[in-house]
Every structure is written in structure tokens, then in C-alpha cells.
């Protein structure tokens, strides 16, 4: 198990490094002029050279990659216009357009996104799985058809339209905004409620169908019949014996969904004015803020790889037959 974990972590790190180098290549070697964009309209040659130097754009690409990696581990120092900016490890670079270290920007945006996504996940897992189980138990009835139909209907609406509808018409919901959890858990929850519900409803629709399918399959298994033959209550049969087994495939989908959402719940953040990773990356993209973009890619790859590993480990907990190694 330990050896397996170390091997997986080693391979995870190598995947992240490759992603990093590849994105480096794409951004820095591309026929664009990052320094020029940052320098802006009233650019002087001196300022341009200064920015180029501070971004290490005057160095060979390989050396730039090296500097970046070194910054991640040991931190680095930027010199810009006579100023010296210390960027402590893990240094993700310095955003000139925002005048802040990227690590700090990410540090502010990440909790927002994590709060939205995890809160939303609680909503859609609870609602989706419960609805799926109900639909599976009443398979073929009108209730089942209504539930599946509603679920398909919700998913047929593009997510941003759904988010927009909630933002515009669900005015009874408290005003959205981000307040750090540690300051006041209540205002944190109230400010995120609208985002949670939107993310929750859209995904609950999909999870209803996943859970329904998985549950129908499980309820047809021989061991469910065995459980019934024991004389335990039907609720115990369905939830302890059925759901316990049906939840494994759902966990796989959930792991990947979560990774995808964490890398940027862009629509949710944008619609409700929540300053998360998605909004940060989108702004960086528009303003060609390379260090921030790089950080976005890096975090995305880390989250994806980590979630994959996490799902695999989760399997060994969920299914005793699975042994890693």
C-alpha cells in the first residue's frame, strides 16, 4: 500500500511537471508579447526592458522553467524598476497587472472556489443520490418518469442559463457574496447559498440519473435477495445493502466532477460575483497575466491528478475486494 502510494505520488509529480513545462512552452514560446501587454499604451523602451527582465523573458526558455521551478520550492526575488520584491516559496510568480504575488492571489481565490464547490457537492450528492434511490425503487412508475424527465430537462438547459435564471429571478435568496468561513460561518454560508443551490440543482439532476442507474443494477443483485430473505426491513435492504454497493461507481464520477469544478466554477463565480479561481483565471486570460495563468494551469493539473489518486484510494475503502499494489 505504502509503496503503491509512493509510486503513484511520484508519477503524479511527473505528470504535473510535464504539464507545467508544456504550458510554459505554450505561453512563453507563443508569438505573443507578454511584456508589451503588461507595459501597455504608454510604454517606454526602458520600462519594456525592465518588465522583460523581471519576467525573465530575456533568458532562454529552459532557464526560465528552471527559475520557475526553483521559485516553487525555494522562493525567488523579482527586481522591477529598482524595486526588489521577495516572493516566498511556494512562489508562483508575480502579477504585474494586479501588483501582487500570484501565491497570494491564489490563496485568496482558492478558498472561495473550494467553498462553492464543496458546498454545492453536499447539495447535489444529497439530493441527487436520494432522488436516484427513490426513482430506482419506483422504477417504471409515473414518479420515476417524472423524476428522470425533470433531470433530463434541467441538464438540457446550459449551465450558465440556469445560473443566470437563478441570479435574476431567485431574488428571495440572500444576496451572494464571499465572507471567509473563519470570520463568521453564518455569513459565509448565507453568502454562498445561491451558488450552492445553483451548482447543486444542476448537478443533482445528473447525479439522480447516475444513482438511479447504479441503484437499479445493485437492487437486482443476488445479495439483495439474500438480504431480504434474512427478514430485515426494506429500508435497511435498500440503504445499507443496496446503496452501500451502488455508491462506488458514483464515487468515480464524483471525483472527476469535483476536480473539474475545482479548477474553475467560472459561471457560478461570475454570475454571483464570487472572487474564485475561475474568475481570477478568466481575468488573467483577458489581460494576458501570464504568471496567474500559469498558476491556474498548475493548480488545475495538481487537482486533477490528486483527485484521481484520491478516488483510487477511496475505492479500497469502499470496496474491500480492491487492494492497491
Amino acid at each position: 500500500m505504502l509503496i503503491y502510494l509512493l509510486r503513484r505520488i511520484a508519477s503524479a509529480v511527473s505528470v504535473i511537471v510535464v504539464t507545467l513545462v508544456a504550458s510554459f512552452g505554450l505561453f512563453f514560446v507563443a508569438p505573443t508579447d507578454p511584456a508589451g501587454v503588461i507595459c501597455g499604451q504608454r510604454c517606454t523602451p526602458e520600462r519594456y526592458a525592465d518588465i522583460s527582465a523581471s519576467l525573465n523573458l530575456d533568458e532562454p526558455v529552459v532557464q526560465q522553467v528552471g527559475e520557475y521551478l526553483k521559485g516553487l520550492v525555494a522562493g525567488r526575488t523579482y527586481h522591477s524598476g529598482g524595486l526588489t520584491i521577495d516572493c516566498d516559496a511556494p512562489c508562483l510568480g508575480y502579477s504585474y497587472t494586479l501588483g501582487q504575488p500570484v501565491t497570494k492571489l491564489i490563496g485568496q481565490a482558492l478558498p472561495v472556489t473550494v467553498s462553492i464547490v464543496l458546498g454545492g457537492a453536499v447539495v447535489y450528492l444529497a439530493v441527487g443520490i436520494l432522488a436516484g434511490v427513490v426513482a430506482a425503487r419506483r422504477r417504471g412508475t409515473y414518479l420515476d418518469r417524472i423524476m428522470v424527465g425533470t433531470s433530463l430537462g434541467i441538464n438540457a438547459v446550459p449551465y450558465f442559463v440556469l445560473a443566470l435564471l437563478v441570479a435574476l429571478y431567485a431574488t428571495f435568496l440572500p444576496h451572494a457574496g464571499y465572507h471567509p468561513l473563519l470570520e463568521n460561518p453564518l455569513t459565509w454560508a448565507v453568502g454562498l447559498l445561491a451558488a450552492w443551490l445553483t451548482l447543486g440543482v444542476a448537478n443533482a439532476a445528473a447525479y439522480t440519473r447516475y444513482a438511479r442507474a447504479s441503484m437499479i443494477e445493485t437492487l437486482g443483485e443476488d445479495y439483495i435477495r439474500t438480504a431480504r430473505a434474512k427478514g430485515i426491513s426494506e429500508r435497511r435492504v435498500v440503504y445499507r445493502h443496496g446503496l452501500r454497493a451502488a455508491v462506488t461507481p458514483i464515487a468515480t464520477i464524483f471525483g472527476l466532477d469535483l476536480a473539474f469544478q475545482l479548477t474553475g466554477a467560472i459561471f457560478t463565480e461570475a454570475m454571483f460575483g464570487l472572487p474564485g479561481l475561475g474568475v481570477l483565471t478568466l481575468r488573467a486570460f483577458n489581460q494576458y497575466d501570464l504568471p496567474v495563468l500559469m498558476a491556474g494551469v498548475l493548480i488545475g493539473s495538481v487537482v486533477l491528478v490528486a483527485m484521481n489518486l484520491l478516488v483510487d484510494i477511496l475505492y479500497t475503502i469502499l470496496d474491500p475486494r480492491v487492494r492497491l499494489g
Partner: peptide, 16 residues
């Protein structure tokens, strides 16, 4: 009344 089913690999719950 109790029942013994055929094919115990699928008749016993794999997770418990």
C-alpha cells in the same frame, strides 16, 4: 423459514 441460495459469491454481500 430460511433460504440457502445458489452461487454464494454473488449471494453474499461483497462489502460486508
Amino acid at each position: 423459514a430460511a433460504m440457502i441460495f445458489q452461487d454464494p459469491p454473488s449471494s453474499l454481500h461483497p462489502y460486508f
